[in-house]
Design a protein around this nucleic acid. Structure first.
Lengths: 206, 206, 206, 206
DNA sequence: TATGAATGAGTCTTCATTCAT
DNA sequence: AATGAATGAAGACTCATTCAT
């Protein structure tokens, strides 16, 4: 007998959080609706008042947690027309700090895990999150090239070169549970940025 | 009663292949032993003559397919002491060509998918595959730095910068099913290498 | 919040009608209290203000819709002492017209459907409806025999012979959804009556 | 641990019998697969080796038990061209004796019960059983009329008049659990036949 | 070596029913 | 009188695993 019942407004959010935790720990199939329910503080049947099925819960989860990275990204890209180098640094810092939060990294992890079984989820995520972010990044780089701040690199290549390392680091630490090579999270950003900007840097005019 | 007796020594291999295919398509939990068996051309019970359980099958699979990337990698690293730049290019080319083969990419994919449920698998894979490769790469870079071919970069950082983009591309195309930006597989390698080497490049001595 | 208050005295009737419809369409077990409630225009919990349980609702339903066939029947039988042949015709006509109304046929249908699970319902219905009607019919026939209008048939046999065909027709059209062989409902009555009376008819006195 | 396993040939039949019994006693929805399984002497999961689902089991059941009444009926009808009166009597006797067997009456009962939920079952049964039998009966009567044994009645009407009473009796005794009015099963047939033939009888030629 | 038959254990999902408001 | 929220209990169905042959 829960002391407080009747809080239908907060419930969906609580359930989604519980589901994300269980799905991440045990995988979609292995996670039991009952455990999700318990974790969210209601009964198994209660979950079905808010979500049609386990699969619907999964999809709602992805949807809900598809963070407004898109907005942030394009905001950054726009703001970055003025100073591409600084904007790239800022962008990297945001990515790294978000990737460090297990709650946030959990969603892309789940998407990757389930891409075989639910290709439509992978597609959805790619289109609505990754592609947006990638486009923003490419625009940022293209602006830098246009302004003469960067060498005449192909923005597509440079964007991959830029985002890849952070992506790898996230996998390495969170999924493969490898130890990070950096004592301070910012250290990675600094070092990486330094290296990358070097690669992008326009030749000093003679 | 099959008219020609099955060469039972080929069986385990056939089963592993079938399992890999099913696990990749449907995920470990969702894949059914019966389908694996059918795919391998024997009966459900037959699989148990070769593997103790579904989980044992999974682990044997990871183990068996943990390609000799380790050996290759260290061979390359060793050989590369002579010419770090060329060795880096060769390394990248190997990585990209392997990553393009769905059969090969399937294993790391599976490992990533299951890292939540079976952390020991992730650990095993990290230790016996990824760490080896990473170490080889770092050694290669360190050699380049020692020889004065590269700037005095931190090999850890540079290794991440080097491998990350290829890793990202593999995820992007195989898991997220995004379209590649490159018409020819080598095009990515060329462009990426060019960019990266630029970042690594030692300052021209004045 | 309904703008005009529901007349609560009409409620039970509305619920019973809704229940009858749902039970008939889907069967007792398959019908959901929620659907019955929705159909009756109130909430699931609301139904429980009027009926203790689903089973109670069923029983109340049978009870309420156990049409006053009994009274009608005995009235007819009494009136028929004067003219058994005419009374038989009238009786048949009533039976056929009632059987043509899906709302009315629904109840006996339900009783038949549930006779396995709820024998007490079948018993109740038999005793309070069918047996009454049958007795009335037998009395009518006995009267005809006594008056010399009919041959000396066993009323029990004749009553079955009389009612059976109409019963069969109802099953055929409503339950088995067969097409009726008669373009006009009265046609069946006329033809059947003609045939039956022929069988009952007293020999013309030589 | 059953003493005799492995008797895949008899199994389906055993399961169908068990299912028929449970469905009849408790109704389709209320019957539990586990009880059916237990009754058939195997485990719940075992039933699914032979039937896809509960509904498939039901349909297979109807199909399997749709006794060769059709064949019998038409055989009788054919044979009866020679002596319609005798054939009608024989027909009635078969119907009554079959209707007296609870195992046999159970199937049409089930069909009637489920006609609301599964109209396709009712249709199937009507087309493949009832319509066949009815047609045979009509042919028999038509033959009698043609030969001059019977009055010039409409075979459709007469067939209903003929079969209806037996149908009613079956309902009455088996479903409504009413007491039969006849101490000997043949008594009903005799009396009914006598009455019906009287109705059909051709006028003695003056 | 190989398998058809069988099952125990487990999970999703449904629904009649309750109760605080 | 009325209901939205919640749940306990139940049942269909699945599947890894076993075993007699």
């Amino acid at each position: 007998m829960p002391r407080w019942r009747r809080r239908s407004d907060a419930r969906p959010e609580e359930i989604l959080d519980a589901a994300l935790a269980e799905f991440t720990e045990k995988g979609f199939e292995t996670a039991r609706m009952e455990d999700i329910a318990k974790r969210a503080g209601l009964s198994k049947a209660g979950v079905y008042l808010y979500f049609e099925s386990k699969e619907a819960l999964l999809k709602a989860l992805i949807e809900a947690k598809m963070t407004p990275i898109a907005e942030q990204a394009s905001a950054l890209a726009a703001a970055g027309a003025a100073n591409p180098k600084a904007a790239l640094s800022a962008f990297a810092r945001v990515v790294v700090s978000r990737a460090a939060d297990p709650k946030i990294i959990a969603v892309p992890r789940l998407v990757l895990s389930l891409s075989g079984q639910f290709p439509e989820i992978a597609d959805h995520y790619r289109r609505h999150v990754v592609e947006i972010a990638r486009a923003a990044l490419e625009a940022l780089i293209a602006a830098g090239v246009a302004r003469g701040d960067f060498r005449a690199v192909d923005p597509k290549v440079a964007a991959r070169a830029f985002i890849g390392p952070f992506f790898f680091e996230a996998m390495w630490t969170h999924i493969l549970r490898g130890e990070t090579a950096f004592n301070h999270p910012d250290a990675l950003v600094e070092a990486q940025i330094d290296l990358l900007l070097k690669g992008l840097e326009a030749e000093p005019r003679a």
